[in-house]
Design a protein around this nucleic acid. Structure first.
Lengths: 329, 329
DNA sequence: CTGAAAGCGCTAACAC
DNA sequence: GTGTTAGCGCTTTCAG
């Protein structure tokens, strides 16, 4: 079903049909009606590919995240689809698994499809080719940030979040505070560790810092066991990622550690379930929804006003949600 | 950057360039190398739209779900992207919010983009127009099932799951068993209620059955309060959706109900957190990952072998995960 | 082994 | 108010 088919049936020209369908003011009311009726009757559906080729702007924005099962990212995805959807933009969600090769493959696809733009949480070490391709596509980074990909970024004040989490434990009198977070090279993980170090002011022992692979819940479980097996184990613990938090909570449960009497814990993020874990998890809540919404409206604005490379960076603050998992040392 | 640009730079024809890039055997080795080098140098990226217009098959499959934040669906999304991704198919994830109008808008977009196919969890009452559009697009339903959309379906044996959940409580001697599940009209919700009714064999009182709106956690909280306020409250409860389960768990926590002594509970699905809720939630685990993987391989097969309308339906069974939330009456 | 030309569906400039 | 024509980037005959 093409405009030509409609034109033939109505003994009109394709351009008249095209104009009628796009509501061109020059077309007479009766013809417009006839054309629209016929289009409906024949089940005509415009061809995006053809329009794109004519230079029409694409209305799809890609959103690339490491893991669709991580509620940290799906909260963002939801906010994005809501916000962009209302502006008539389709969001194409894709998953990289934190694998640079997969990421590159996805970006290739996006470039070939001439998407209007890309919003992404980059993998730890993007391929050179990915960087090159993204240079020609309007894009913004969300949550994580890699300088080589540009300087448009919306995210969390990661250092501040961990500083606040750790300060809370320090104020409670804890001195041996352990840290379980993401591995080196990730912008977010590095910033969070920096925040932790700021808070402990050099009083932290390096044997209390464990960095795990992203998205690996089992790593976090192992990390906790190792920490508790130390000659002088920690009296408190902060986690610096959703996955790390989940792993630690599960392992604490399995091991039967009493919280907060044996160990005080401050988590990262506020997932469903954190509130009903043990005595209720004291945790750092993060405004992911707000961040993603801001990001999408800003991005859409830039896209429609004409893309510019003027850097823009915005970071939002988390806040402590006090529940039952922390107590005085 | 187009094939023409490359051709011009190399004093070749567009067709030669096109052939070289697609690895046509007729092109001499040296020319091929030269073309590929130039393409790389100029950062050439093929244009999907142009290829599509030439009749090339689309390599994107849409996946439409009610809510990206629901881990029930994201588990499926993950399985799909993994499985289809390895076959070179891009998955375009979109969210309907269980709103038929949004759903229609999305389907329009998919039809216009000429996607290769659609995998969807339909909204409760698809619009007539959605049905018409889908009739011309290869599609399969996942989890939920609406007959008007066709008879290709992969899902859970919903009736069986609720029957097993309820049987477990009956064997423990419970007689007043409450049900909190999705509202009428949804294939899954109807099947689950049927399973529940089968199990109680007419011994169930209708005042113990509450049906809530999909995706509404707060409805479930209200439902629980209403049930507990009954003149003769239930001694046990089954939930028939992830959201219903989450709502009930939160409310039980807030109300300080002792489980299983005051009330036995069997949940639906096995989300992170269900294991550490109170005494550990006894729940029905569902093989969502397996279902989605099966669905995607089957779908891809049909797509590549040429689409046929021969009905295919597959349902997988859940199993009871016994933890601490159920006890003898 | 390579080139010329047609055409996929649509829109916009240019007639009338 | 409507028709004609050209061309977006690519592949694919059909000719050399």
């Amino acid at each position: 079903m093409t405009t030509r088919d409609i034109a033939a049936e109505l003994a009109l020209s394709v351009s008249t049909v095209g104009r009628a369908l796009s509501g061109d003011s020059r077309i007479s009311e009766p013809t417009r009606i006839r054309v629209e009726a016929k289009a409906l009757e024949l089940g005509y559906v415009g061809n995006t590919a053809a329009r794109l080729m004519r230079g029409a702007p694409s209305n799809v924005v890609a959103f690339m995240i490491p893991d669709v099962r991580n509620t940290f990212y799906t909260a963002a995805a939801h906010a994005l689809t809501q916000s962009l959807g209302s502006l008539g933009v389709q969001v194409m969600l894709s998953e990289t698994n934190d694998d640079p090769a997969t990421e590159l493959a996805q970006i290739r696809g996006m470039a070939a499809a001439r998407v209007a733009g890309v919003i992404l949480t980059p993998s730890p070490t993007p391929k050179r080719e990915s960087i090159r391709l993204l240079a020609d596509i309007p894009h913004v980074q969300l949550l994580r940030h890699d300088r080589v990909l540009g300087s448009h970024w919306f995210g969390v004040d990661d250092a501040g979040v961990l500083r606040d989490a750790t300060d809370h434990l320090i104020r409670l009198g804890h001195e041996r505070i352990a840290y379980v977070g993401g591995h080196a090279g990730l912008s977010t993980a590095d910033a969070r560790l920096r925040g932790f170090r700021d808070a402990v002011r050099g009083d932290g022992c390096d044997d209390l810092i464990v960095r795990i692979r992203p998205s690996e819940v089992t790593d976090a479980r192992g990390a906790l066991r190792a920490l508790l097996d130390l000659p002088s184990p920690p009296t408190a613990l902060v986690t610096a990622s959703i996955r790390a938090t989940e792993g630690v909570l599960e392992e604490l449960n399995d091991l039967g550690i009493r919280v907060p009497s044996d160990l005080s814990v401050v988590g990262f993020g506020d997932e469903p379930g954190f509130s009903w874990w043990g005595p209720g998890l004291t945790t750092m809540a993060l405004p992911v929804h707000e961040i993603a919404t801001q990001c999408s409206t800003w991005f859409h604005q830039r896209l429609t006003d004409g893309w510019s490379d003027t850097p823009y960076r915005s970071s939002s603050h988390g806040y402590l949600l006090e529940r039952g998992s922390t107590a005085a040392a």
